[in-house]
Design a protein around this nucleic acid. Structure first.
Length: 268
DNA sequence: CTTGGGACCTGGCTGC
DNA sequence: TGCAGCCAGGTCCCAA
């Protein structure tokens, strides 16, 4: 599932191929992909525009276009962007051909991905919390945001309005690294514990970016290669397997209809 | 206001 | 072997 490290990797690996290029052809195979815009109008407005730059905000990929517009892509659960794929994918939802001949295909098996074409990105990404890897995301900022809520720390970490970009699997890894039980409530944490969570957020996310993301399910990089961050996972998706630190069996509980994995010994 | 839970979506897996 | 039901989870929406 594309979370911050995966979207960051996609941005980095896509940029050399498409930044500065024009959209020569736009083909949408599934109209549900496009947010509140008829497909013909989407294609008409996009064709001929150039990509000035690509950036990332949380899990959103933002293409800045030449005519003061933005193409925003959220890959949700199973979306992928592939450069010059060998074969036509049965889950292709849209494809784009650029002026340099590059062919970009958006695949999405579960069809939850969304694409916006907007003049203002504020309505799309305006409610997101701070970027956890930026310098201004300090432990004090984290503390101030967590203290306003009385919710399990796991729920807080995946709340995009509190911190942008952390999803279910990295939240579990962050809490394992911080040796913290996922049900600890946000307003019960000591300054030392918050500092430890802050350190873990940055370390886990940076490491995952260096590993080009985690290919636990459908995630692939634009060139088709897999990421390797999941080889570092200690608890995520490891129910019943021994904790790599203490050997106790990893437990799974359900939180907000999501699997939450943790070591009951290391995360008391 | 906050928090919790269901819906959306599809395919792989598990257990009877 | 067939099939029901669970599981994966980001975000939106509604209810308490």
């Amino acid at each position: 599932m594309p979370e911050l490290p995966e979207v960051e990797t996609i941005k980095n690996e896509l940029s050399p191929w498409v930044v500065g290029q024009h959209f020569n052809q736009v083909n949408v195979l599934d109209g549900r992909l496009i947010y509140q815009l008829p497909v013909p109008e989407f294609c008409r407005r996009l064709t001929g525009q150039a990509i000035e730059s690509i950036s990332r905000r949380g899990k959103y990929l933002i293409f800045q276009l030449s005519v003061a517009q933005y193409l925003v892509v959220h890959l949700r659960m199973s979306g992928a962007l592939l450069l010059n794929p060998d074969k036509i994918d049965p889950y292709a939802r849209a494809s784009f051909t650029f002026s340099n001949g590059t062919h970009l295909v958006l695949n999405d098996q579960r069809r939850l991905g969304i694409v916006w074409l907007v003049e203002n990105i504020e309505p799309v990404v305006g409610k997101l919390g701070p970027e956890p890897l930026e310098d201004n995301f300090t432990a004090a900022v984290l503390s101030q945001r967590l203290s306003k809520h009385h919710i399990p720390i796991k729920v807080a970490l995946i709340d995009q309005s509190l911190i942008a970009g952390i999803g279910n699997m990295y939240a579990d890894e962050i809490l394992f690294a911080a040796r913290m039980h996922p049900l600890r409530t946000t307003d019960s944490l000591s300054p030392e514990e918050i500092q430890h969570i802050h350190n873990s957020i940055r370390r886990i996310l940076r490491s995952a970016i260096a590993r080009k993301g985690a290919s636990t399910d459908t995630y692939v990089r634009p060139g088709g290669q897999l990421g390797t961050a999941h080889f570092d996972f200690k608890v995520a998706h490891r129910k019943g397997k021994p904790c790599p630190v203490c050997g106790v069996s990893v437990e799974r509980i359900s939180l907000q209809n999501r699997g939450t994995y943790f070591c009951p010994n290391c995360q008391p």
